[in-house]
Amino acid sequence: MFTALFGSVEQGIIYAIMALGVYITFRVLDFPDLTVDGSFVTGAATAATMITFGYDPLIATLCALLAGFVAGSITGILHTKAHINELLAGILMMIALYSINLRIMGLTTENAVGRPNIPLSSSDTVFTMLHDFWSTLGIDAMLNNLLTATGLTSLPRTWGVIIVMFIVVFIIKFMLDWFLKTEYGLALRATGDNVKMIRSFSANTDNVKIFALGLSNALVALSGALIAQLNKFADAGMGIGMIVIGLASVIIGEAIFGKKTIVRATLAVIFGAIIYRVVISLALQVEFLDTGDLKLITAVVVIIALVIPYAMNKYKEKKRRAKRRAQLMKEVTAMPEGEKPIA
């Protein structure tokens, strides 16, 4: 149980990078970008292919990030320059990427043009590198000793991934927070808020949109590249439903942690991604549920996250009104006879 939860937190932190990307398009730019399902795999495919060719995993991961940026920018160009509807531009890019991803992975084999998956079981990845470095520090033994003291028997393999990825995700979060407060970042937010207005203040909204979509998909692809390396394989189908997971993370996070400021919203998105993973892994512990029910569970979780804040607001409002009514009634009854309002 503990190791299962531990594993889902580990995955959740990496998916949080993807969720931050989705946050940029859906929430900041107000652009429902479906490229994500494709660009997530593009990141995984690029990294896996380059690692197979023997490139340094760090360089491979960086290239995956760039590939995602390019993919997102093309969606942006399709929308702004070719005037294709937002949803359609994303869908077109998503299906185009499916073939492109097969081609990218196909580079590793001479037998075929395309290839549906690449195993990384015997390759060096950023996580094997991390592991080598981490095991010299002796933090694992220390933390596991603490855990055995509390009576836990099944212990996690390593704490390295969780701790280092937490640091990485928070660095990304702080950079994003900072960026969205710069002059360019403000123009980006205004483009999502009131495009007519910001154009009248001399912002090239086309370029802003293209850049934002690029940035978003760069993060998504980075997340894909890391997930491929953590799970030790890249697969053409690993991106299916990714956009829903991203949205679920954003919605769950905002429902629990609020979204008043950028700083708070990005934090909410990160924890939303982790909570989503934890909820899914808890749900799968239930005897009755099967891995095939995953999508249904996701849908239910998102619906709950959407409905509960609304219901809570309504309840609060009702209570506030009741309190106010009671107070007014008290004032009325306290009035001397004759001055009372007729009602």
Partner: peptide
């Protein structure tokens, strides 16, 4: 203040300086 920053940057190029 962010809205004013948007207006303030009208005749300047928008870079990575802090808006406010």
């Amino acid at each position: 203040q962010e809205n004013l920053a948007l207006a303030y940057s009208r005749n300047k190029s928008r870079g990575l300086r802090s808006g406010v």
